[in-house]
Write a protein that binds this DNA or RNA. Structure first.
Length: 268
DNA sequence: CTAAAATCCTGGTGGC
DNA sequence: TGCCACCAGGATTTTA
């Protein structure tokens, strides 16, 4: 489940190798991977495009290409973007392959086929509806409080909504709510200014910790990250809360497994 | 508006 | 050991 810290880790790892390289060919192995344009147009448009910049917006990997086009990759559940050497041969779950001008390969592999790739001129088509970057200066405790006050939703689904704040997934949302001492079912509008400040700090610190640990290594996606060893609640049902020792509970909220400490996180 | 459910997918898991 | 129902979840779409 690559979330913001995992995507940031991938962007950082690919940046030195990809910036300045030219994509000489693209081969689509699973057509639905390409959200826009068609798979055929995608293959036709890629050759000759130089990678100007490798960055990230929320959970989207973002390659700025020569000619003004933007290549976005969303890894969703099980996607990964890997650099392969010249000896590479396609593997079972590889969905999209780029040939690089240095003889290497850039491979999008995705066991569960949820990942999507866009090649667009207008970047707003892909990332236009996203909420604020949680680690940017424009994401402030004050604005978070105002937006929480206006929302008529529970905290968990609200924080997972990429239009509210962009980059949190199931893991980091549970961890952030725990750090903030807020119950996942809590109505957003009832959050006080002080609690909003705590939530803001919790979101930023948990994401920063995740990045510092090179993300979390879960299931199919392994990037050498270590944050999975620092979870307080996620995947720890039945185990003691590292803060107070109470037993971590797991419930379902908005179709998502949701972990919390019943003592630290009051529903109030 | 909010929310709940269905959808897309595969592989791992738990129960028997 | 084998089989199978079920679960995991990001985002979108549909339904209420």
């Amino acid at each position: 489940m690559p979330e913001l810290p995992e995507v940031e880790t991938i962007a950082r790892s690919l940046r030195p190798a990809l910036e300045g390289i030219t994509l000489t060919a693209a081969r689509v192995l699973w057509p639905r991977t390409i959200a826009e344009p068609s798979a055929g147009d995608f293959e036709a448009l890629i050759p000759g495009q130089r990678v100007e910049q490798v960055t990230r917006r929320a959970k989207y990997l973002w390659l700025r290409l020569s000619g003004g086009k933007h290549l976005f990759v969303h890894l969703r559940m099980s996607g990964d973007l890997l650099l392969q050497d010249a000896n590479y041969t396609p593997a079972k779950h590889d969905r999209l392959i780029f040939a690089l001008s240095d003889g290497r390969w850039l491979v999008f592999t995705d066991t569960r086929k949820f990942g999507r790739v866009w090649l667009v001129s207008d970047l707003q088509r892909v990332i236009g509806k996203l909420g604020p970057e949680p680690l940017s200066p424009s994401f402030t405790a004050e604005k978070l409080y105002v937006n929480l006050s206006a929302a008529r939703r529970q905290l968990k689904p609200l924080l997972l909504d990429q239009a509210f704040v962009a980059g949190l997934g199931n893991i980091y949302t549970d961890e952030a709510l725990h750090r903030a001492g807020l119950h996942p079912l809590r109505s957003a509008a009832t959050v006080s200014t002080d609690e909003a400040r705590r939530l803001h700090q919790a979101i930023q610190s948990v994401l920063a910790s995740g990045i510092e640990q090179n993300g979390a290594s879960i299931d199919w996606v392994y990037r050498g990250g270590n944050f999975q060893n620092h979870f307080s609640v996620y995947g720890r049902k039945g185990q003691p809360c590292p803060v107070c020792g109470a037993i971590i509970q797991k419930i379902v909220v908005g179709q998502r497994g949701t972990h919390f400490c019943p003592r630290c996180q009051k529903a109030g």
